[in-house]
Amino acid sequence: MTTSYELDVNGVTYPVTADQGKNLLSVIRENVGLTGTKEGCDDCECGACMVLLDGQPLNSCSYLAVQAQGRQVTTIEGVMDGPEMHALQRNLLEAGGVQCGFCTPGMIMSAKALLERDARPELDAARIGLSGNLCRCTGYAKILSAVEATAVELNT
C-alpha cells in the first residue's frame, strides 16, 4: 500500500509517497534523489548502504523508510563541511583509501559515527567500528590509516 509521509534527510524535509514496505535505501535513492548511498548486497551484510539515523549507523537496506519519520537521516551528501570536504573524505583520498569507491560512502558514515562516540579510537576499536562495512578492492589498512589521521586531526 502506498503511503505518504515526510522524511528529514541531511536537515531537509522531503515529502515521500511510497509503498509502506519500501526500504530506506530505495527511498533515499529513488524518492529523495540522493544516490551517494549505495546498494551492495541488499542483505544487511556489506554496509555500502550505511547512513546515520539520529547519529547512529544504520543499514538503510534493511530498515523501513516509514520508520525513519520524525528522525534525522544523514547520508554521505550531508557530511561535507560547507564547500569543504569532511576531514574523513580528505584523509581517505590522501591515504589512498579509495579505489573503486563503492564502499566509501558507507565506510565514511560508519567512521563518522565511530569518531563521534570515541574521538581517539584504538586500532581494535576502529576495526570494530568499521566491522559492518566490507571493502573488496582497496583493503582495510589504508582506510584505517585515514580514520586514525582524522582522529588525530580533529583532536589537535
Partner: peptide, 9 residues
C-alpha cells in the same frame, strides 16, 4: 551481535 549498526537498532 551483528555490527555497530545492528547493535544500535
Amino acid at each position: 551481535v551483528g555490527s555497530p549498526s545492528t547493535r544500535h537498532v
